[in-house]
Design a protein around this nucleic acid. Structure first.
Lengths: 93, 93
DNA sequence: AATCTATTTAGAAAAATTTCTAAATAGTTT
DNA sequence: AAACTATTTAGAAATTTTTCTAAATAGATT
C-alpha cells in the first residue's frame, strides 16, 4: 500500500461517498452508480481508483461485480495519523 | 473545515512531508523549502493549500513566516475514519 | 447462437493541479 | 530612504485527473 495512492483515492468526494455507502453492505457497481449523477463508466473509473488503493475489493457473482470495504487499509491510515498525536516533544520554539 | 479540502491537501506527498516535518517544531517557509527540490514559490503554494485546509497555521516574526501544525483538524479526520470502525451491522450479504 | 444485462476499457475533451519564472509585497537593516 | 531578506502573488506551461461517448468484454437468458 502507498499512502500517495490511498490519500489520492480519498481526496475525491464521490469516492469518499462510495466508501461510506459500503460501510454496511457490499454493493454492485450498478447499485453504486445509481446513487450518483454520472455515467457507469465514470463510476467504474472511481471504483478502479479505490481498488488500486486497496480501499475496496471486488467479488464477482453472475454478471455482477460486487464491491466491499477492505478495512485493513483503514487501520494503516489510522497509524499514519497516529504519528501526529501525543509525541509533541519540543512543545514550542 | 471541509473534508474535501482536507483530503485534497493530504493527497500530495510534499504536503504530507511538510506535515511530518512540523510535528515537533514550527518552521519558517524558507526552512521548510530548503528540504525540497522546488522553488520557494512552489513551497508557498503548498503551504497555502495546507493553510486553507486548516492543517497548519502561520505566525509572523520579523520578516519570517512560521508554520505549525493545527492538531485539532487531525482529530476531526480521525473521527471521519472512525466511521469505518466497528459498526459492521450487516456483516455479510 | 443470438440477445440481453452489467461492467470495463479506450480515447478524447474539459477541468484542476502542480510547477516554474518574474514581479510584487512587506518587514529589516544599514 | 536605499538596499536587503523572506515570502507571496500572477501568469503561463506542463501534467494529472475527471468525465464523457462509444466500443469491447463477459456472463446469463431465450
Amino acid at each position: 500500500m502507498s499512502f500517495a495512492e490511498t490519500f489520492k483515492a480519498l481526496s475525491d468526494p464521490a469516492r469518499r461517498e462510495i466508501l461510506l455507502m459500503l460501510r454496511n453492505k457490499k454493493m454492485s457497481a450498478g447499485e453504486i452508480g445509481s446513487h450518483f449523477d454520472m455515467t457507469g463508466a465514470t463510476v467504474s473509473y472511481h471504483l478502479s481508483v479505490l481498488k488500486k488503493a486497496d480501499l475496496v475489493y471486488e467479488t464477482k457473482q453472475k454478471n455482477f461485480v460486487y464491491y466491499e470495504l477492505n478495512t485493513s487499509v483503514f487501520e494503516e491510515i489510522m497509524l499514519w495519523f497516529a504519528q501526529f498525536k501525543g509525541e509533541n516533544s519540543d512543545e514550542n520554539q
